[in-house]
Design a protein around this nucleic acid. Sequence first.
DNA 1: ATACTCCTTATAGCGCACTCTAAAGCAAGT
DNA 2: ACTTGCTTTAGAGTGCGCTATAAGGAGTAT
Lengths: 123, 123
Amino acid sequence: MEKKLSIQDIAALTGLSTYTLRYYENIGLLSGIERDAKGYRVYSMEDISCIEFVIKLRDTDMPISQIKEFSDLRRQGNSTVIERKELLEVHQANVIKQMKELGDNLIKINEKINHYKKLAEQA
Amino acid sequence: MEKKLSIQDIAALTGLSTYTLRYYENIGLLSGIERDAKGYRVYSMEDISCIEFVIKLRDTDMPISQIKEFSDLRRQGNSTVIERKELLEVHQANVIKQMKELGDNLIKINEKINHYKKLAEQA
DNA sequence: ATACTCCTTATAGCGCACTCTAAAGCAAGT
DNA sequence: ACTTGCTTTAGAGTGCGCTATAAGGAGTAT
């Protein structure tokens, strides 16, 4: 008794537009999505978690080309688990670096705000 | 005895290309940059700190349109200090939010890595 | 039958932030 | 005098990640 979800449903659930959902499928970020008798896309629960993970990769600034690599590995099955792990570990390091750099820049922005506060007090 | 720096020097110092330096000036992110007798750009130390702060804003994903707003305020002088402070405070909140979201996504990526590690061990 | 609504595909267009090219000027070196 | 090497400008082109359009098909409502 699996729920069958339309592209509209998925758009509402994931926050991606229907355009983007088709685009992601076309370029190979998503695959194995069923079609009904009319040729309409039908999404499973597993598809949703797949999409949500793609969104997490994207939101941590993984380029689409690399998300595609990851998706291609997944499509190839269990033999690629180690490769997928390694790909994610590289990305993990990038995200940590990104956060550190954001933190450093945030400090500088804070300093500038404090500088302006002092200037404003003097006036 | 101020050092006078060429666009090449600034490119080397800031990591921006000479293209980007001219582009930033054209669109109003940078202003008040001197010219020598030949019409060549000559950068001051203050220009450098200005450029470096622009880079920090850019690297924290402030859109160029907003960096321009900030630069325009600066050009208007001391009367805009409070406005500049407020603009940066809004951005500060965005950066904090960004870091939080990165952290949340990082946790999910870590979970996936651990999942793959377990799968790999079983095999 | 006709209109409406949802979907499909292929392909074109957009916004952002650069990045490069073309044409020209000036100064030093050979 | 001429080449090299730096600069200038205006404007064209690039890459990414969507976003929109056009043309058409199937199912439901009137």
